[in-house]
């Protein structure tokens, strides 16, 4: 879902503080922001999503560009908030609870038990794949998939050279390929965990 031709109009209304314009922007981008924060292990992704959008609406006056660059801008803010969150996490004890989406899927719903179990397994499988990536690999792959961003923009957001981003992407896809081949393969061909330089 994209805002499309209405983007300029929506942006102008948002600059005037109209709730409807905020809602259009939020509904378009919040799933990406929340998905990026969750998949990159933010401690409280929903709270951080709120902070991201508050920062977005407060700084709308300084933004110039089209919808594509607006999405990059929002994800840049998201990534910076995530790094701030990592810094806070490093100073506080780890929360041992399950990720929000796993917990949410464990709560009772209208779905049949079989569907719930399959969904939970699929989610855990995705988490397992993401856990096998380094933080930088995870950031690259989620920005490329969720944000649909080119290498150049991902490099700008992560403040890394394009060649480094290409290398991180290749290694992340190689890990994903081993998971597709089978869990045994992925277990025996792990890359050594290279700590990201955030």
């Amino acid at each position: 879902m994209a805002i499309g031709d209405r983007f300029e109009e929506v942006l102008a209304a948002a600059r005037l503080g109209e709730r409807g314009a905020f809602e259009t922007i939020y509904r378009d981008l919040a799933p990406l922001v929340l998905g990026y924060l969750r998949s990159n292990r933010a401690r409280d992704p929903e709270d951080l999503t709120s902070e991201v959008f508050i920062a977005v609406v407060r700084n709308l006056g300084s933004f110039t560009g089209n919808e594509k660059s607006f999405r990059s801008w929002v994800l840049t803010i998201t990534h910076r908030r995530l790094i701030d969150d990592f810094r806070h996490q490093s100073r506080r004890p780890e929360d041992p609870t399950l990720p929000d989406d796993v917990q949410a899927r464990m709560e009772p719903t209208d779905e049949t038990p079989e569907t719930e179990v399959l969904d939970l397994l699929a989610t855990q499988s995705v988490h397992h794949i993401l856990d096998s990536l380094t933080e930088d690999q995870r950031a690259v792959i989620t920005l490329r998939i969720l944000g649909d961003m080119p290498i150049k923009e991902v490099a700008a957001i992560l403040d890394k050279p394009e060649t480094a981003v290409k290398s991180l992407q290749h290694r992340a896809l190689a890990t994903l390929a081993r998971h597709l081949e089978g869990p045994e393969e992925s277990a025996t061909h792990q890359y050594p965990p290279d700590r990201p330089g955030r």
Binding site: F22, Y26, A30, S39, S50, I54, R58, T123, L146, L176
Partner: peptide, 29 residues
């Protein structure tokens, strides 16, 4: 594989959470 990964990465938001966040955005401006 990429479609499935994307499907699980995109996180739909609860209506209450959405309204709460929108209220915060309006209040912030």
């Amino acid at each position: 594989a990429l479609d499935e990964l994307r499907e699980h990465l995109v996180a739909p938001l609860d209506t209450d959470v959405t309204n709460h966040h929108l209220d915060a955005m309006v209040a912030a401006t």
